[in-house]
Design a protein around this nucleic acid. Structure first.
Lengths: 169, 169
DNA sequence: CTTGGAATGTCAACATCCCTGACATAAAGT
DNA sequence: ACTTTATGTCAGGGATGTTGACATTCCAAG
């Protein structure tokens, strides 16, 4: 069904990957793949009665130790009320440490505690396992294309804020 | 913690796309891209006070007119009760037609009505627009890689059921 | 033919998560 | 002193998911 690039592709044939049908396939792939993408962490979180919101908070606190509540709200695109419930639980459960800012005492700098880091490791290891399998089976060139397309799918405004962010260690 | 591939560069360099850091980037890309992927439909759905569950139902009913409730449950991976509330709303609002099966009267065959098809068009057109932009900016080779990786990310069990499904018109 | 189990679909009650709106507190800036 | 910023909290509502109970229909064993 795919590639009809046998002889001297005309201009219209070069754009065959932009047909509505190809786009629909991309849409459905995105949906099914995302379900797989979240499946493993979801199972781990369920045991602790946490949800994806907890996972996202833990992930980004691990990525940027000391980031403030507002910065996290910005990254996640949720309301402070929504995030606050999640953070309160994580702090109460001893997974996250919320310290008053030193320069600006209004800020709360967030850090993972030892148990918090342990959960983060468990979650990200599971997610990496699936991602590694997918990358490995698809090959390096496919991975490059995967990243190229996904980058373009991010909201332009968010992309500007997040680009360069991904590369930082 | 991340790549310790300092020695023996030949073989390990070929696997650099499998480092923990590359995988982490893939994970974050997947998260941010999915937010973009759902942003446009979400805005349209909000006006009608619908959610993503309604979108998914509408999408697959459009794709497979006449499919049964159970088939839809299988595709979406939700409980019948959860799906039922969504379907009831859509039927009440005149977007979906639920007809008693002719062979097996326990079945309900689902169809989009005229207004249902109109909403589906609106939703998928918005989603295609973003997908088309991403595909177009990334190029055909990138799109091929994108599809390859996403396919591999789908849960193996689900992939078996869905593969071949995507290609069908 | 009847009866009992299995498949299918529906309804009700409840939990979770995210949202908006309003308000409180503390600290920084002017 | 007054305003702005950052954060936290409470109240209420909507969307989505769950479990439990129940109705309908089909099918097959007795």
């Amino acid at each position: 069904m795919a590639a009809g690039f046998t002889t001297n592709p005309t201009r219209s044939e070069q754009l065959l990957f932009l047909t509505d049908d190809q786009l629909r396939q991309g849409i459905e792939l995105m949906y099914f793949a995302y379900r797989g993408f979240t499946a493993d962490p979801d199972r781990i979180l369920e045991e602790r009665e946490y949800g994806r919101a907890h996972h996202r908070a833990i992930h980004f606190i691990n990525r940027r130790p000391g980031l403030t509540v507002n910065e996290l709200i910005d990254l996640l695109g949720v309301t402070k009320q929504s995030l606050n419930r999640v953070l309160r639980q994580l702090v109460e459960d001893g997974l996250v440490d919320s310290r008053v800012g030193v320069e600006d005492r209004r800020h709360r700098n967030l850090y993972l505690t030892e148990p918090g880091q342990a959960l983060e490791q468990e979650l990200s290891a599971a997610q990496r396992r699936r991602m590694r399998a997918a990358f490995s089976n698809a090959g390096p060139e496919a991975v490059a294309g995967f990243r190229k397309v996904l980058e373009q799918m991010i909201d332009p405004e968010l992309r500007a804020r997040v680009v360069g962010w991904l590369d930082r260690p």
